[in-house]
């Protein structure tokens, strides 16, 4: 496709992109604050980072990437006017989102049972607040995807009109995008 034939607007409703930019700004500030705070507490951050479960983080990263891929397929399905395939891809994406929540919930349970909380130290304050902030975005993204999936199941979208699917998809990819930075930053980089 030549440059002149490309659309000037991103997929989905423009309002969601304003929202996405605001969300990215907030997460960006959060990430930078984590990084610069770590620079003043290197020993503490490196020590307590070792208490995090990297296997769980791997499962969660794979779950979000897979979920995002399923959403891409859902958008492709509705563009091909196949609303039931769109519905099934969205259900698969939701299952991956649910897996993320279960694994993350198990991580939180482990930390809380060990007596860890927001006041334990600076590292845990960032770990818990950053990941829980993201956790809430996964929950919101799943609610949006569920609403889109149900409408797709009822035949509410078509190849000609599927802005809602693209809007929900864009938000879900943003949730995935943010985790791509969060995973190495909090769990791996030292």
């Amino acid at each position: 496709m030549s440059e002149t034939k490309k659309p000037r607007w991103p997929p989905g409703d423009l309002v969601i992109w304003i929202f996405i930019m605001a969300e990215l700004l907030v997460f960006g500030v959060f990430f930078a604050t984590y990084a610069f705070t770590r620079a003043h507490h290197v020993a503490q951050f490196d020590t307590y980072q070792l208490t995090l479960n990297r296997n769980a983080a791997l499962i969660n990263t794979l779950a979000l990437i897979t979920s995002s891929y399923f959403v891409v397929r859902a958008v492709a399905a509705i563009r091909a006017d196949n609303s039931q395939a769109c519905f099934r891809w969205l259900l698969a994406a939701l299952a991956m989102g649910l897996l993320f929540l279960v694994v993350k919930g198990a991580e939180y349970h482990h930390h809380f049972s060990m007596g860890v909380n927001l006041g334990t130290n600076t590292f845990y304050m960032f770990y818990l607040s950053l990941t829980f902030f993201h956790f809430l975005h996964v929950v919101l993204g799943m609610i949006i995807l569920l609403a889109v999936a149900l409408k797709a199941h009822r035949g509410g979208y078509s190849a000609a009109e599927h802005t809602g699917v693209e809007t929900g998809a864009s938000y879900w990819h943003m949730v995935d995008l943010v985790w791509m930075i969060l995973f190495p930053l909090v769990y791996v980089m030292r």
Partner: peptide
């Protein structure tokens, strides 16, 4: 993810 999943590779202009 931005280019291929969000579809921004197919968008022209600032977005």
């Amino acid at each position: 993810i931005g280019d291929y999943f969000m579809g921004l590779k197919q968008v022209a202009g600032p977005w």
